[in-house]
């Protein structure tokens, strides 16, 4: 049975269910349950639910130590940018230890953080920096775009035997959606087709999925059938679903809230060029944020972001351009 829940409640539900299911799941971080009058504390005690100082390096490093000692910590980091304070733990410790031990240890942990909070939070709290975590072998990256996925990807992240950056989108936290009750898992590395169409493939993540679907709706009125794909996890990436769609449509628009240089859309574009070139009827088009730190003031903030109009415009462009010789 599904019922409507906001995205943020769906995440908490997943953590709660996993903690009830598995005693080794711990939950801690800054401002996690400072008061004892908290659902997690009441259900799971202070041993498993802790509030921690603003010490990101220690918070994440401890999670690695807990994981090596047999636990599955979920660390609340609030903002993706706060992980940058502890880059060594995120990039150089957690994802490397399994391989360097010859597979003899594993580091199952979840780094839970929000991103993309373009709501007037200026330059240090609004970034879409998931691309920074995608190039790290051993580190998985999940980007839920719906309330159901928010629940299912969190449960999968907790059960995964590897470090996972679970990056929720701050603009989606109050969005409601149907969420299955009880145990619900969304597999990693399995993209979902949010809307089917035969003329053009749009790949989008997180908050931009909604923008892409809105653009697809507008385009439908113009007789253009857009297919919208949400990869849901960037590492692992379901390249097969994207390539199958490109084979059908021959035209691609890739949407990414990150800035263009080193955007994750670059990686998808390279994959299509590598394995799907002969299907293409037009150059691959990327709609990313513009190349700037996000400014505080609203007109400037809106200007740099991908939006419905930019996506629709890019689709019209790939449909209008001359075919590329295969």
């Amino acid at each position: 049975m599904a019922r409507e829940l906001p995205y943020i409640a769906a995440i908490n539900e997943a953590i709660h269910l996993e903690m009830a299911r598995d005693d080794t799941v711990l939950f801690y971080g800054q401002d996690v349950a400072p008061s004892d009058d908290d659902d997690f504390v009441k259900a799971f005690s202070r041993d498993r639910v802790r509030v921690s100082p603003i010490s990101e390096t220690a918070e994440i490093g401890m999670a690695v130590g807990l994981a090596l000692a047999g636990y599955r910590p979920v660390v609340e980091l609030l903002m993706a940018e706060f992980m940058l304070v502890a880059m060594n733990q995120v990039v150089n410790e957690a994802p490397r230890l399994h391989l360097m031990s010859g597979g003899r240890v594993k580091v199952p942990l979840v780094l839970k953080a929000g991103y993309g909070f373009t709501a007037g939070w200026a330059g240090q709290h609004t970034g879409s920096i998931y691309n920074m975590f995608c190039g790290i072998p051993g580190l998985k990256v999940a980007l839920p775009s719906t309330a159901a996925d928010a629940k299912g990807l969190m449960a999968t992240a907790i059960r995964d035997d590897n470090p996972v950056c679970y990056l929720l989108h701050y603009l989606l936290v109050l969005e409601h959606g149907d969420v299955p009750e009880g145990e619900y898992l969304v597999p990693f590395g399995k993209a979902v087709v949010r809307r089917e169409g035969g003329d053009v493939t749009i790949v989008a993540t997180g908050w931009t999925v909604g923008r892409a679907l809105a653009a697809a709706e507008t385009l439908a009125g113009e007789g253009i059938a857009a297919e919208v794909i949400d990869p849901r996890t960037l590492n692992p990436l379901d390249t097969a679903t994207i390539l199958a769609s490109v084979e059908k449509t021959g035209r691609v628009v890739l949407v990414d809230q990150g800035t263009p240089h080193g955007a994750f859309s670059n990686v998808i574009a390279a994959g299509i060029a590598d394995q799907g070139f002969s299907s293409l009827k037009a150059p691959v088009k990327q709609v990313t944020a513009l190349d700037a730190t996000v400014a505080y003031s609203e007109p400037m903030e809106a200007y740099v972001l991908p939006n419905e109009e930019k996506i629709a415009g890019a689709v019209r462009q790939v449909l209008g351009s001359a075919p590329v010789a295969a």
């Binding site: 390096t57 220690a58 918070e59 994440i60 490093g61 401890m62 999670a63 690695v64 130590g65 807990l66 994981a67 090596l68 000692a69 910590p73 060594n88 733990q89 150089n92 410790e93």
Partner: peptide, 9 residues
Amino acid sequence: GNLPLAVGD
């Protein structure tokens, strides 16, 4: 680099 790991242990 692994001082906090020992805290976790």
